[in-house]
């Protein structure tokens, strides 16, 4: 992680809409040059956070900084350095796609003409069609191209690929990677785990307006569990009550012992040692899947403090 000033920093953000508490002490930090995945179930407060960060709405409490400045007071000046794709893309139905692109581009500052032309090609957009005659995916492309072609330091993308086909999704990922290499930071709110996995350097997962966890994908992986399927000659000693091990089952099969269990990353090494002592016949280690992590974190049934092995910033504060 860079020590330079973060592009976005939000601390203990709260936002209430009448009786609804949309944000409830949320933390978010995006470092320069990183692609930051922003995840959470529907209604968790992602779009609300983004609007607060952009100074479109004002936080009820907490502290937010954009490029070190106050987005509510200096919105227009700070916006020079970023481009935004809103969650619900709305365009002027009577204008053509190309005209909307230019209007949005002018709104965001300066469009890089070569990039604009290149992206129109890449996303196979017909810029002469009226927006009202576009399909949903094509409307989405207009907003995306306008943001991706802008000469800015930060891209704020709220579910940018909803409605894109897999080929376009691929193109999107390539372009974001290129922009990142050029030094652009990205805040990427998304429901597509594959996309986050492919692009994000770090992710923040929020639920009910609170940050549940944040870190690099590798760190998150460390906090998830590895599934192990081992067939050994002897009965492995002391497995059942090894630290960090759960879901253990064992049965005798053709004179071998077949064990299945899951284990957290910190204790993997010790357990593999025990298996080794019991003479490994076959061994399958399934790496932790992010899907598991997300499903678990998203699950409303699990209380926040029960999500195992996750950093809990707000717990630490209490």
């Amino acid at each position: 992680m860079s020590t330079a000033q973060p592009v976005i920093r939000a601390e203990r953000l709260t936002k209430t809409f009448g009786p609804v508490r949309a944000l409830d002490g949320l933390d978010l930090e995006v470092a320069p040059g990183e692609v930051h995945g922003f995840l959470g179930p529907n209604g968790a407060g992602k779009s609300t956070t983004i609007r607060v960060v952009l100074g479109l709405i004002r936080a009820s409490g907490g502290h937010v900084e954009l490029f070190g400045g106050d987005p509510w007071r200096q919105a227009a000046t700070l916006h020079e350095r970023l481009a935004y794709v809103a969650g619900d893309v709305a365009l002027w139905p009577g204008l053509t796609g190309g005209q909307c692109l230019d209007v949005l581009g002018a709104t965001q500052g300066v469009l890089d003409e070569t990039r604009r032309a290149d992206l129109i090609d890449r996303f196979e957009l017909d810029p002469t069609k009226r927006v009202r005659d576009y399909s949903k995916g094509n409307r989405q492309k207009v907003a995306l191209i306008a943001a991706l072609a802008a000469d800015v330091e930060l891209l704020v993308l709220d579910e940018p690929t909803s409605g894109l086909d897999p080929l376009m999704e691929q193109a999107f990922q390539e372009v974001v990677r290129t922009r990142r290499e050029q030094g652009c930071s990205v805040l990427l709110s998304s429901h597509i785990l594959g996309e986050v996995e492919a692009l994000a350097d770090r992710v923040s997962i929020i639920r009910r307006g609170k940050t549940v966890t944040t870190g690099t994908l590798a760190e998150l992986r460390r906090h998830t569990r590895t599934h192990v399927h081992a067939v050994t000659v002897d009965e492995p000693a002391g497995l059942a009550d090894a630290p960090g091990l759960t879901d253990w089952s064992s049965e005798r099969l053709d004179g071998h012992i077949e064990s299945r269990f899951s284990i957290d990353a910190d204790h993997l090494d010790a357990v593999i040692g025990q298996l080794h002592h019991a003479q490994i016949h076959t061994l399958t280690v399934t790496p932790p899947s992010l899907d598991d992590l997300f499903l678990r974190t998203y699950d409303e049934e699990v209380p926040l403090h029960d999500v195992p092995g996750l950093e809990q910033p707000e717990e630490a504060l209490r």
Partner: peptide, 23 residues
Amino acid sequence: RGRPGSARASAWLRSPVGLATYI
């Protein structure tokens, strides 16, 4: 039915007053 139109917005349309005029 609507017909296709220009692929570019004029400098006027790009300006805040121009877009407001269009609206």
